[in-house]
């Protein structure tokens, strides 16, 4: 397939960019994400996660079940900052972010 084909629709990362990241040592979706922004757009890798893992599997020869999943964080779906901040005394935005930090999941 044409290497300029988009894989991550949101951040518009193509096959070539993903393969280059793998050449540079990326082994997981998250490695590729850190090198290219692939999967960091508004859908948060919901659309590109399988196609990207298939490229990793094909390129490295690793079976698909050994290619790890992208790390998921809250919020699971797009939510506006104002919505998170609304009614924050009810332990909302504080606990969402506060607990993440405490857990060392920065």
């Amino acid at each position: 397939m044409d290497k300029s084909t988009i894989v991550c629709r949101c951040e518009e990362i193509n096959i070539d960019e993903i393969e280059t990241a793998i050449k540079n040592g990326a082994e997981t979706f998250d490695d590729i994400k850190r090198l290219t922004r692939c999967g960091m757009g508004p859908c948060q890798s919901k659309t590109c996660f399988y196609p990207v893992n298939e490229i990793i599997a094909e390129y490295t020869g690793m079976p698909l079940n050994e290619v790890s999943l992208p790390r998921l964080r809250m919020p699971l779906k797009m939510v506006r900052m104002s919505t998170l901040a609304q009614d924050s005394e009810g332990s909302n935005v504080v606990s969402v972010f506060g607990e993440s930090v405490e857990d060392g999941e920065s």
Partner: peptide, 18 residues
């Protein structure tokens, strides 16, 4: 949208989160 440490589930209606 996620879960809290005490395993309560965070939900939003687009206006507020609870």
């Amino acid at each position: 949208i996620g879960s809290y440490r005490n395993e309560n589930i965070g939900v939003t209606d687009g206006e507020k989160t609870f």
